[in-house]
């Protein structure tokens, strides 16, 4: 028996909007720790890891570890039917091949049940070891989203270079080139507007902008994004989900031309 009640149901709506275009089908894993997911895109270039900790739910009942295969497009369709202020409860019985989403309006005057078919998914799980990254950039998520969008109108790839001067995002395409430098800036009034760079050695990596733009669909989940870079590792693009956990995207680099 599984029953997860999330008062801030909009979080789950935002999570699905952030990942449904990257991954078609995925297993959601429920355990005492929380509600989690790890899935790769079909080309094995990008991976999404989601954790919503059990403490973040108003009610969290998970009698035994359960893996539920869902089509994320269909799940997103169902969650779109929930209001932004609705409380969302997920329910599943042991051995059932369906999951039920219950939506309650804040005033309790509208209660909806949506039952979705589960599916068997042969998912590949990757072990992701803890790593020391050469550079960690923390910046406003809206700024990062803007940069990825702007650069993708010029080129297909972005070179992210971190030095002690700042973080540089560069692209080149048929019409020309673009370079955007964000300097460390931690003197702003609001912490969510700061750009903070922690660096042990300079790093420069090239990535496909198509994936970066897909990751920025998580922007509504957090005002801050963290980029963790090492010269010999995939980049980690992390959006923290307040009080609950995180959504992390891993992206393999391109070989520099």
């Amino acid at each position: 028996m599984l029953e997860l009640r999330l008062v801030q149901g909009s979080l789950l709506k935002k999570v699905l909007e952030a990942i449904k275009d990257l991954v078609n089908d995925a297993n959601f894993d429920c355990s005492a720790t929380g509600f989690s997911l790890q899935a790769m895109d079909s080309s094995h270039v990008a991976l999404v890891a989601l954790l919503l900790r059990s403490e973040g739910f108003e009610h969290y009942r998970c009698d035994r570890n359960l893996s539920m295969g869902m089509n994320l497009g269909n799940m997103a369709k169902m969650l779109k039917c929930a209001g932004n202020d609705d409380i969302i409860t997920l329910k599943a019985d042991d051995g059932s091949d369906t999951v039920t989403f219950m939506f309650e309006s804040p005033t309790q005057d509208k209660i909806s049940d949506f039952e979705m078919k589960l599916m068997d998914i042969d998912s590949e799980h990757l072990g992701i070891p803890e790593a020391e990254y050469h550079a960690i950039v923390r910046m406003p998520s809206s700024e990062f989203g803007r940069i990825c969008k702007d650069l993708s109108s010029i080129g297909d790839t972005v070179v992210i270079s971190v030095t002690k001067e700042g973080v540089k995002f560069s692209t080149r395409g048929d019409i020309g080139t673009a370079n955007i430098v964000c300097r460390q800036n931690n003197t702003v009034d609001k912490p969510e507007e700061a750009t903070i760079i922690e660096m042990t050695e300079p790093v420069s990596l090239t990535f496909a902008l198509r994936y970066m733009n897909s990751f920025t669909k998580a922007t509504p989940l957090s005002s801050i994004v963290t980029l963790s870079l090492s010269s010999d590792l995939p980049v980690v693009v992390e959006y923290k989900i307040a009080e609950m956990g995180y959504i992390r995207f891993y992206l393999a680099p391109k070989i520099e031309e």
């Binding site: 790769m40 080309s43 094995h44 270039v45 990008a46 991976l47 590949e124 799980h125 990757l126 072990g127 992701i128 070891p129 496909a208 590792l233 995939p234 891993y250 393999a252 680099p253 391109k254 070989i255 031309e257």
Partner: peptide
């Protein structure tokens, strides 16, 4: 494109 690495070159399947 063919100069794109994959995650399987970095992380092990478990």
């Amino acid at each position: 494109s063919n100069n794109q690495k994959t995650l399987l070159g970095f992380f092990q399947k478990v």
